[in-house]
């Protein structure tokens, strides 16, 4: 049995989790077994049934009110109990820092092998082998995963789901929740509202020091808005507090793998490239033709970002 751990946002399964469901159902097919989805927290039953569209037959929904706010320790306890109760041998999740926190504790409880940043379906011809991205995207490793329970965290865009039109049966579960899982108190949550989530985004527009100051971000925001893209930035920009830290993309920031990454005024230091090199298409706009980022790019424009960005926004809006 394959179990897919999913994340919920606004009552529905997140897009990255739908990819994980599709990936999990493919692994189930390869192993001649079924896939079950675990959804924790407040979610709409009709939304959860959509897991069927991505290949799952069943959704287990734990919606105890104690689980409404994401709590990695409580979620991990539910995950580990579910793995045991349904006898799952493989757990799939979309890679995210919350999912990492959850699967880590579940792995500790289950003595499970955990592999992160999986980039392909497993090779089952000789044991259980997966390809993982290592050194922040600079290389790959083919890893043999042993252990009775295996947990795989997949990267975004590893599979392109084909929707079946099926619907999954949703069953409520009420796992036991020990009091000590809720020992920490969240006193404040500060979250940007109305923004497209960076790790989930298909399109990303990112700015570097070439934007020359936080007051100059509007042309970049306009393009992101026109495209429906998330916004990101380089490390110096977040260090200088021009943009919030959660937008920082790179070796020590968020790693993204969108369909399109547009870099504006970013020279392309190796540490920045590490966070974006698994993007499908990279566009670089920089006034310096020698910027190293052009070597990694698919499309390049040598020019002033403040002249180029409005032209791009205009073209996007005209094409709509």
């Amino acid at each position: 049995m394959i179990l897919i751990f999913t994340e919920i946002a606004d009552g529905a399964i997140k897009k990255s989790s739908l990819e994980a469901i599709y990936y999990g159902s493919k692994v189930a097919e390869m192993m001649g077994t079924n896939s079950t989805v675990l959804a924790i927290g407040n979610a709409d039953e009709a939304e959860l049934a959509k897991a069927g569209n991505f290949g799952a037959t069943k959704v287990l929904h734990a919606n105890d009110t104690k689980l409404t706010n994401p709590n990695s320790m409580a979620y991990a306890s539910v995950l580990a109990e579910t793995v045991k109760s349904i006898g799952a041998k493989v757990v799939i999740t979309a890679k995210s820092s919350f999912a990492d926190a959850v699967t880590a504790r579940a792995a500790g409880a289950l003595k499970a092998a955990v592999v992160g940043n999986v980039t392909e379906l497993p090779d089952l011809s000789n044991g259980f082998q997966v390809k993982v991205s290592i050194f922040t995207g600079k290389a790959f490793a083919d890893v043999n995963v042993n252990g009775d329970v295996k947990i795989l965290a997949i990267k975004k865009n590893v599979v392109a789901p084909i929707e079946s039109g099926n619907s999954a049966a949703v069953q409520n579960i009420s796992p036991a929740l020990a009091d000590n899982l809720f020992a920490a108190k969240v006193t404040e949550t500060i979250k940007a509202t109305g923004m497209i989530s960076l790790p989930e985004a298909d399109l990303v527009v990112s700015g570097g020091r070439g934007m020359k100051g936080p007051e100059n971000w509007q042309p970049l925001l306009d393009l992101a808005d026109a495209l429906g893209a998330a916004t990101a930035c380089s490390k110096p920009v977040s260090d200088l507090d021009w943009r919030p830290h959660h937008e920082h993309v790179g070796q020590t920031g968020v790693k993204v793998s969108p369909n399109l990454y547009i870099a504006c005024g970013i020279s392309g230091a190796i540490q920045h490239l590490a966070g974006v090199n698994s993007s499908k298409v990279l566009v670089v706009i920089n006034k310096d033709p020698e910027a190293p980022f052009f070597k990694a790019a698919d499309y390049g424009i040598v020019g002033d970002v403040f002249e180029v960005l409005p032209k791009l926004t205009k073209a996007v809006l005209a094409n709509k």
Binding site: S72, V115, T136, A153
Partner: peptide, 22 residues
């Protein structure tokens, strides 16, 4: 920064039976 898995702290927390955050 080699395998980027980000799970060791959580596994340690569970093994020790104490909370973990990251």
């Amino acid at each position: 920064s080699d395998y980027n898995s980000g799970v060791v702290h959580g596994i340690v927390g569970e093994m020790l039976g104490i909370p973990s955050f990251s």
